[in-house]
């Protein structure tokens, strides 16, 4: 069982593109600090099925610099990094 603090609310939307049905999950780590920014992203990514996409909302600085970098180093595909508003950015990571 996951501890309560590491249990995420799953927001799932079914997308149909490239002939495959893929789920998109959302994770907001804008209020998190090191190391939970990485920890929550890693745990959420590990729960996805191959092909699923994780939309991560994060802030500038360490999370923006290193969350996409560490994800791609671990073999995940970073599809998009875009600015949302203020200090918040959105990163799309595919498993």
């Amino acid at each position: 069982m996951l501890p309560h603090s590491l249990n995420y609310q799953k927001e799932e939307e079914q997308y149909s593109f490239n002939k495959f049905k893929m789920a998109t999950y959302k994770l907001d780590i804008t209020r998190e600090h090191c190391p939970m920014t990485f920890v929550k992203t890693k745990i959420q990514l590990s729960k996805l099925n191959p092909g699923d996409v994780l939309e991560v909302l994060l802030t500038e600085g360490e999370p923006l610099q290193n969350v996409p970098k560490s994800a791609s180093e671990q073999g995940f595909k970073v599809l998009e990094v875009s600015h949302v508003e203020g200090l918040v950015h959105k990163v799309l990571i595919q498993k």
């Binding site: 501890p3 590491l6 890693k42």
Partner: peptide, 16 residues
């Protein structure tokens, strides 16, 4: 300050 407590870090260590 929304920083992980010691207990949360230990739980995360187990999960990871």
């Amino acid at each position: 300050n929304n920083v992980a407590t010691l207990e949360e870090l230990v739980e995360a260590a187990k999960v990871l």
